[in-house]
């Protein structure tokens, strides 16, 4: 029934690959462009899938926290929640502030003066994110070898200015953005 050689698929492929010159260049250009479009399409499709895991609009718009600080006596600490994290507010005693100011810079792993960590004029108030900079545990107050904070997870010691003094943590406790709204009120964030 078949009167002629119909093995077209093989010959077709050979013809295709043996094509050369201008025609071949044009064809290659077409193939490359098409493939590039495919790559762009895949990339564009992946981005929404990745970005959806970033904080959403409601998390970004999370309200700042306002705290009444009038009730914090000298030597006392309170912990408030800001963006789901604990924030330590410590009304330091004068002795603690003096001790912090007396530390020479070369003893510090992450050198920062006490003045850089508290607001001038209200330097008794120390406001820090209560998260150990090592692996995220919450350090204990009034503990450790430097009279400040001590992280029980892996033994990081912080001084009375919340600076890292000994242990695996690389950085001082983080100071969040904050401002004093009035004598008695503080807004974090």
């Amino acid at each position: 029934m078949l009167q002629k050689d119909t093995a077209l698929s093989d010959t077709a492929l050979e013809n295709d690959t043996s094509a050369s010159g201008e025609d071949g260049t044009r064809r290659d250009f077409l193939y490359v462009t098409t493939a590039a479009f495919g790559v762009v399409a895949a990339g564009a499709a992946v981005w929404p899938l990745v970005d959806q895991m970033n904080p959403d609009a409601s998390a970004l718009a999370m309200a700042s926290t306002e705290v009444d600080i009038s009730a914090i006596e000298s030597g006392q600490s309170v912990t408030v929640k800001w963006r789901g994290k604990p924030v330590f507010i410590r009304n330091r005693t004068d002795a603690e502030v003096e001790a912090a100011k007396a530390v020479p810079m070369d003893e510090l792993k992450d050198p920062q003066t006490d003045v850089e960590r508290a607001v001038e004029g209200r330097e008794n108030l120390l406001i820090m994110v209560g998260i150990c900079t090592h692996l995220g545990c919450v350090p204990l107050g009034d503990a450790g070898d430097f009279g400040g904070w001590f992280c029980p997870c892996h033994g990081s010691h912080y001084d009375t200015a919340g600076r890292i003094r000994r242990g695996p943590a690389p950085l001082n406790l983080v100071i969040p953005p904050y401002e004093f709204m009035s004598e008695t009120s503080l807004r974090i964030g």
Binding site: L8, T11, A12, D16, R27, L30, T34, F37, V40, A41
Partner: peptide
């Protein structure tokens, strides 16, 4: 717009691929 251009390119590619094949 992107998909239409992409479809056009794929159509041309498809035509090239099938050019010598009945």
């Amino acid at each position: 717009i992107f998909l239409l251009i992409f479809a056009g390119l794929l159509y041309l590619t498809k035509r090239k691929v099938f050019a010598s094949v009945k």
